[in-house]
């Protein structure tokens, strides 16, 4: 990636201030997965299964719901 392109991308991200890429825009919790949580789908219906194909590849954000992902240790290490 050229530095010019990188500057443009950074300028855009700085302007908008939202994380994640516009690869999949199917659902809000896929589009901005970093500011979403894994219970998003539960809001619609507790018995629903994932119905967006991209969620089979794109994982939920591991920063929320730390208990469900055993990532305490990673996060603590990063903070240190």
């Amino acid at each position: 990636m050229s530095s010019d392109l990188l500057k443009k991308k950074n300028a855009f991200v700085e302007l908008v201030g939202l994380p994640d890429l516009a690869i999949s825009t199917e659902a809000t919790y896929v589009r901005h997965r970093s500011v979403s949580d894994i219970f998003s789908i539960y809001k619609d219906d507790g018995t629903l299964r994932e119905y967006f194909p991209s969620t089979y590849a794109i994982s939920h954000s591991h920063t929320m719901n730390l208990h469900s992902t055993n990532l305490h240790a990673i996060k603590k290490n990063n903070e240190k």
Partner: peptide
């Protein structure tokens, strides 16, 4: 959500332990 959280989130965007992978 801190910037550190976002980094962790970015690292784990693809869950190799489930789904299509």
């Amino acid at each position: 959500i801190s910037s550190e959280d976002l980094k962790v989130s970015y690292q784990n965007i693809f869950d190799y332990k489930s789904g299509i992978f």
